[in-house]
Design a binder for these strands. Structure first.
Length: 812
RNA sequence: GCCCGGGUGGCGAAAUCGGCAGACGCAAAGGACUUAAAAUCCUUUUUCCGGCAACGGGAGUGCGGGUUCAAUUCCCGCCCCGGGCACCA
């Protein structure tokens, strides 16, 4: 056969057109095949796909196609995280509505998606900005409202002046906005809607045990830190001379006899009562100075209130201070300071010359002497000078003292979490309207379910001023109260867009259902997600909200699974020529450019080949050119040898052995560790052998090689794989064939190559039949002509043989 | 400060269970084909020493120790890089 040059444009265009109307990737519920749900994180429709997206989808697509070929019923969907701030900013800049802008972006990105031929079931496409989708956000909200999981409270909230909206705690990164790392977040007091994620804090934490093994350890660690469960006790001190309790949270009650002052957060309600005018001013200054600053950079500062608190154990009275390092949002907002046994308290008390009193000694040492302590002793030890608990190991004292507090009514063992309820109110337009109505008489009235969806009005002027643009839409705001009929106001806040992405993967299972968010039976079939693939940047926000939503949906009886995702894979970033890609640097590698210049197959294979999928990949033009050359090499071999007629099979055995070894390697990798870089390398090795042995390859062997090459390439380079399949005269889509089997015997080498070492150094090699006994290997090694001289005049101390691998002779 | 990753040629990397370090690719150099170039094909390419050469010898996976017949791989200590958390009482 005459060789043909590899023309990616012609090949990809041809199959693109041929596949246009085919629905190869439809997932069905009624089938005897085992199911496999593979999911990639849905993109924000910014307008263009870049190489980072391509990497994410290429990993998922390789897996999805492999699973299809292994006979699974694969669900592989895609959608759009279509609400969000950039649409509003674009609207202000371009005089277009957020909706127009978003829909156009989706259309453009979908076109690129199609061009890359990712194996999605597009019939299940979900776009979160459509009423058909967001009405179920509203529905879930109402369900949560009924159950007390959604509530409203006035709260100090994180406010980003640039976004002109509220941020969730999770969206504040080192005191700055997660989108604007140069903008300090301010604190404002606003009436806000919250979801009670803390109701599930314990379960979110304990269920991580089930995710162990399937999720990356570091994601679990990040979530554990975020939830921040801490066991301790709440203890009531009393304001001296009164019965007013002041409750503190501590993890170390055993140190309470060493408490030398009590410290309130500056915002603590009691502090406001106790402080004089000057003190109040100090407190306010502390709060303001804290906003948006890295906590580690702020020096500890305090102010004595002039009042005292009584220690319920010792009866001692200690001064009450306020201090900037005590947080209102954690525990009770008040602490007992035990400088001898806590580093922070030590630093604070030294600064203000407050007494330091050691009450815990090291197990094998003496109690520290004061004055003279240089640092706090924070470990457990033995309690001393601690009343009836003196002499106890401090861990025992800790437990017993908490019980004592409970028996005597001034405290109890308690657990505190770092995670806080999820603030979801946003003073923004392009999001899901929160379905409640404010009535002067009836207060907060949920929108009746049969009136959903509360439609987001179109043609709204976007001002970007910080008040919801919806407030300026009278038709939207002015409604009759559903309960009493009186004129009322509709809620104008919209929901955090993380709501949208918290359950979208359920909607894929039943994307067109207009009566329910989804049919529970379909969820029962498809869930849990067998493999979720996305960036590690979502380790906390999206992945913890999703878990929360799943538990909430289970508790309202919609689903049975406790967790959404069995296995999670976090792929590494793509950087461009050594630097992080960003719009402002103008070095974003766009998917359309890649498809045009190199073809979709090359782009896909490049991102898979450059590094194992969990690692960072550096985009390099030369790297892509290398892959392009390789695909050309494959194609030219195929076109030269398809339909080859030759009886000369002198190289057949060698080539077929390599072929079956390659199939074995790739199959193994798909089943275990997904190191597609080495999979592709092994195909390259195979092709190198093909080039070397081409002359002496029989027609039959060539046919087998070409067929299996097409099948092996199908998950990575579907266009070229199809073209090869076609060249080989085969019918139908290559990616719907069975994954190739390999012959264990054929893949075996004839003889084992045995390495011979003398004192651990490689000195010679020999071949021996598989299974040659160890004694025989050693005997043969000793006779080897390179080895023999090295043994002369030496004493053989030991000889080790590893069957089929190695002999090591130790001499003296 | 604490918790995870990671450190291997000029570069991206490989070595899956303690057994040949550097597969595969990039870049570079040389050759073949060509009027020429591109493309393609072939060869060389960790490093040092000896040799015209085939070849031979030594060193080598961040650094220092240890275990072992044998360590990129396991253990202890340290250095550097990346990420996460960080007054959470």
């Amino acid at each position: 056969m005459p060789e043909k040059p590899y023309d990616h444009r012609q090949i990809e265009l041809k199959w693109f057109e041929s596949w246009q109307d085919a629905d190869f990737y439809k997932a069905e519920e009624n089938t005897a095949k085992p199911k496999f749900y593979v999911l990639e994180m849905l993109p924000y429709p910014s307008g263009t796909l870049h190489i980072g997206h391509i990497r994410n989808y290429s990993i998922g697509d390789a897996l999805a196609r492999y699973k299809w070929m292994r006979g699974f019923n694969v669900l592989h969907p895609m959608g759009w995280d279509a609400f969000g701030l950039p649409a509003e900013n674009a609207a202000i800049a371009n005089k277009r509505t957020p909706r127009e802008w978003t829909l156009q972006n989706i259309a453009a990105m979908k076109k690129t998606h199609r061009r890359f031929a990712f194996s999605y079931d597009w019939d299940r496409e979900v776009s979160t900005c459509e009423p058909e989708y967001y009405r179920w956000n509203q529905w879930f909200f109402l369900k949560m409202l009924e159950r007390g999981l959604a509530y409203r409270k006035k709260a100090l909230v994180n406010w980003c002046p640039k976004c002109a909206t509220v941020l969730a705690n999770e969206q504040v990164v080192e005191g700055c906005c997660w989108r604007h790392d140069d903008t300090a977040v301010e604190q404002r007091a606003l009436e806000q809607w919250f979801l009670k994620i803390t109701a599930y804090a314990d379960e979110l934490l304990s269920d991580m045990a089930r995710l162990e093994g399937g999720w990356p350890e570091r994601v679990l660690t990040m979530q554990r830190n975020w939830i921040g469960r801490s066991e301790g006790a709440e203890i009531d001190f009393t304001l001296a001379g009164t019965d007013t309790p002041i409750r503190v949270f501590t993890t170390r009650v055993d140190t309470i006899y060493g408490a030398t002052c009590l410290i309130l957060a500056p915002e603590h309600p009691l502090a406001q009562q106790l402080l004089d005018a000057e003190g109040k001013a100090r407190a306010k200054a502390m709060v303001d100075a804290r906003a948006g600053r890295d906590p580690g950079d702020i020096d500890k500062e305090g102010h004595f209130t002039g009042h005292y608190a009584r220690n319920p154990y010792s009866g001692e009275e200690v001064p009450i201070w306020i201090a900037n390092f005590v947080l209102m949002g954690y525990g009770t907002g008040a602490i007992m300071a035990v400088p001898a046994h806590d580093e922070r308290d030590f630093e604070f008390c030294r600064k203000y010359a407050i007494a330091v009193r050691p009450v815990i000694r090291p197990v094998d040492g003496a109690l520290a002497v004061e004055p003279g302590m240089k640092e706090a002793f924070t470990e457990y030890g033995v309690a001393e000078n601690t009343g009836q608990w003196s002499g106890l190991p401090s861990e025992d004292a800790r437990r017993q003292m908490a019980e004592y507090a409970e028996q005597n009514g001034f405290g109890k063992a308690a657990i505190t979490f770092r995670i806080k309820d999820w603030g979801i109110s946003r003073q923004r337009y392009w999001g899901t309207p929160i379905p409640v109505i404010h009535c002067a008489k009836c207060d907060i009235v949920p929108v009746p379910e049969n009136q959903l969806p509360v439609l987001l009005p179109l043609n709204v002027e976007i001002t970007g001023t910080g008040r919801s643009p919806l407030e300026n839409v009278p038709d939207f705001v002015n409604v009759a109260c559903p309960q009493c009929g009186a004129p009322a106001r509709r809620e104008t806040d919209t929901m955090d867009t993380f709501i949208d992405s918290s359950w979208y993967f359920y909607r894929y299972c039943d994307a067109r259902n207009s009566d329910m968010p989804f049919d529970p039976a379909k969820i029962a079939y498809w869930f849990e997600i067998d493999q979720y693939i996305g960036g590690v940047e979502h380790a906390i926000l999206h992945l913890i909200y999703s878990r929360f939503f799943t538990k909430m949906m289970r508790d309202i009886g919609l689903i049975k699974n406790n967790e959404p995702t069995r296995r999670l894979f976090t792929q590494g970033m793509v950087i461009a020529e050594g630097t992080k890609m960003s719009k402002s640097k103008g070095n974003v590698v766009g998917a359309d450019m890649l498809a045009e210049k190199f073809g979709a197959d090359t782009a896909r294979m490049f991102v898979l080949f450059a590094a194992p999928p969990e690692k960072e990949v550096d985009w390099r033009v030369e790297g892509a050119e290398g892959i392009y050359r390789f695909l050309g090499r494959v194609y030219r071999f195929v076109t030269r040898n398809a339909g080859k007629i030759s009886e000369n099979g002198a190289s057949d055995r060698k080539v077929l052995r390599k072929l079956h070894q390659t199939v074995r390697k790739i199959t193994d990798d798909f089943e275990t560790r997904w190191h597609f870089n080495t999979c592709i390398a092994s195909i390259m090795e195979l092709v190198n052998v093909l080039y070397a042995e081409e002359e002496n390859l029989s027609g039959a062997a060539a046919a087998e090689v070409i067929e299996k090459l097409a099948l092996m390439l199908a998950p990575f380079a579907p266009y070229l794989a199809q073209e090869i399949w076609d060249e080989a005269g085969k019918q139908g889509p290559v990616f719907r064939q069975c994954w190739p089997a390999f012959d264990r015997e054929l893949a075996k080498e004839d003889e084992a190559e045995i390495v011979i070492q003398v004192n651990g150094k490689l000195r010679a090699r020999m071949s021996a039949p598989f299974g040659t006994p160890q004694e025989e290997l050693i005997a043969r090694a000793k006779e080897d002509e390179k080895v023999k001289p090295l043994l002369e005049g030496k004493q053989i101390v030991k000889a080790i043989a590893v069957p089929d691998k190695l002999v090591n002779i130790v001499v003296k």
